[in-house]
Design a protein around this nucleic acid. Sequence first.
DNA 1: TAATAACCGAGACGGTACGTCTCGTCTTAGG
DNA 2: CCTAAGACGAGACGTACCGTCTCGGTTATTA
Lengths: 203, 203, 203, 203
Amino acid sequence: MITSSTTTTIGRPRDARTDRAILAASLELIAEVGIHDFRMDDVAERARVGKSAIYRRYRSKDELVGATVAALVSEIDVADTGDTREDIVALMNGAVDVYTDPIRAAVMPSLVGAMQRRPELARTIREGFLTGRRDALREVLTRGIARGDLAADLDMELALDVLGGPLFYRLLITGGPINRELAEGVADLVMRGFADTMKEKAA
Amino acid sequence: MITSSTTTTIGRPRDARTDRAILAASLELIAEVGIHDFRMDDVAERARVGKSAIYRRYRSKDELVGATVAALVSEIDVADTGDTREDIVALMNGAVDVYTDPIRAAVMPSLVGAMQRRPELARTIREGFLTGRRDALREVLTRGIARGDLAADLDMELALDVLGGPLFYRLLITGGPINRELAEGVADLVMRGFADTMKEKAA
Amino acid sequence: MITSSTTTTIGRPRDARTDRAILAASLELIAEVGIHDFRMDDVAERARVGKSAIYRRYRSKDELVGATVAALVSEIDVADTGDTREDIVALMNGAVDVYTDPIRAAVMPSLVGAMQRRPELARTIREGFLTGRRDALREVLTRGIARGDLAADLDMELALDVLGGPLFYRLLITGGPINRELAEGVADLVMRGFADTMKEKAA
Amino acid sequence: MITSSTTTTIGRPRDARTDRAILAASLELIAEVGIHDFRMDDVAERARVGKSAIYRRYRSKDELVGATVAALVSEIDVADTGDTREDIVALMNGAVDVYTDPIRAAVMPSLVGAMQRRPELARTIREGFLTGRRDALREVLTRGIARGDLAADLDMELALDVLGGPLFYRLLITGGPINRELAEGVADLVMRGFADTMKEKAA
DNA sequence: TAATAACCGAGACGGTACGTCTCGTCTTAGG
DNA sequence: CCTAAGACGAGACGTACCGTCTCGGTTATTA
């Protein structure tokens, strides 16, 4: 999406209703027919908008898809229950909920393909879908270390990938179930696998 | 791919050189321009072959892509060193090697997208890239359980997803490094996280 | 139009029915809706043909229009009645008939505009609509000189333009009537204006 | 062009500099890129004017083109040398001069096409380019008849078309030369072809 | 002086045709 | 029946241009 850096509005400003109509039509259509049968002309017709209004905002179909999906990003609230495992499970359940939603689940695989050839889309997606939750998890893990629940020398990136990887693996490739059992399974695994061994030995 | 059920060859037999030329051209082009700019006409031209020769062998573009990629599958040898961790690491390193190869790495994201709308492509890919290694890992884990290195009640599917997930997660989404450190990291995590607690307590 | 110079037909040959369907649809549509509302997509639909089949034959809309109109060219038969005036009138009446046809009359002005920016269209039109009749008139005038009806030193190009100009002038600009009176009028004028003065004086 | 019927100017009056800037830009652009690549947006940009300022003055592109070209019309002075042929030649030379100007020559063919679908443009053009000279020629011819140089029963419309037709014929269709030779050629032809035969016989 | 009305530049808007592209199929002549 | 070459129908793509509309603001006349 193109965003003006200056606030100075010269000429007729973009119509916010058009903005919304385009994204709404786009989301509806993606949900209804899937990415593969998603057509720009249909978006224009559904949104009662000229194609030019779309292409003025998004340089290409992929860009529109990216923006449409990015709009689905939901807020993440980092719980702090005092229990490291519970905090991890809470965040993982949030992710499970996101990819249980049929639209997001249907859209994700297509986005993966598009990310390769559109670096800026990749950035958008990563920031919209990953960074937030990843940062939240990092915070929780760090608190877990401080609390003595987790080893101080754990490979943080690996831990985050072990938490997030299986979910996407099932979503994109194996087709395995994405549910609370998964969320708790990886949480428990991380808790056990990265447990503070010093503490254990001390005990 | 279409394979004749009868061995009886009536009329002119298919030219094996044409078979090879098509797959070779296909692989070259995918590597050069990426899946997105991969065109059937280009394959025909590069292979010095008519388009009909391609469509006689593969019903669609996706099918050709699937076959091309499937041809990249390498043999998996299930080591049995007697050491569960070493066996896991060996298999994981095999996977790391596969996705370190630029072609396979470049092709995978596109395949993920295509898998959604082409169930048979999905099956081909899963069988070509996953099943073999997954079965091998399952075998190794089962031996680990028998050997008392791993808990008898471990969630096998979860364990396999924890081993495979992070690799694909980095490949497809985060862009994180895919190397021996990752292989060993997830192996160690599984070894620790799914350790046979009975044995530990006994010790 | 693109015409292969070699007779060697390799690959699937152009379908002559497609050729005809395109030109027929084009002519029908021009006649029905006029040049201004003439659309390539409509031609494709009417001809039950893909747009690519059209663009394979004609590089642009202008080119198709040109070819469509060129197909309207009618045969010119150079009469030789022995009477110079009658021969001229016969040829002029042929031209009058052509531009009395509503389709040709409606199409001509648009072609004039297109001729400026499409030299090869210009050539096509000139050859299709002018050269033949012009050559025929030249022949008749030459015979008239030989016969002593016309001055030997007449400016042939001027004579031809005086014969043809008024017709196009009325067609394209003044909107004046195009009829036998005009044909006879210019014929008589040329007969009188370019009469062999030597002969007159001799008489 | 829209002209207020009331002289009462309410609100801000039109800026005369804007009027001029639009016409100037329009003329420049037509001369530079030709009618076919002439865009309203370009006019606005070149004239440093909003598109609305243009459309407030001219209802359409064709209308602007018409007005731009009409501004090129030059004054016609009907000479009265006492010599019919000289008067005709003088007027014809004026026309030759007009269409020797590259801009007018380049613009005319496009106008012909536009005239068909824009009757009021047609009127503008006819009045701007034809009526004046046609009236002048008619006057000269009428004087020629009175003077006995031309036949009283000549077909005036035909005579006028024979004078004007060849020029436009060459301009629009044949591409033949437009020069004094042409002017004199048609003048002489009309003088001879429509000569007063009564007078001749009398002589 | 304030209100009103039409002007101004900039640029977004809906609409629509264009010419391009690719897919998967079909049609030749020839091996 | 295979092959290469390439035409075919279908239909989405992204671009271009038109003529209209909307914004914030300006410049005159009228109240």
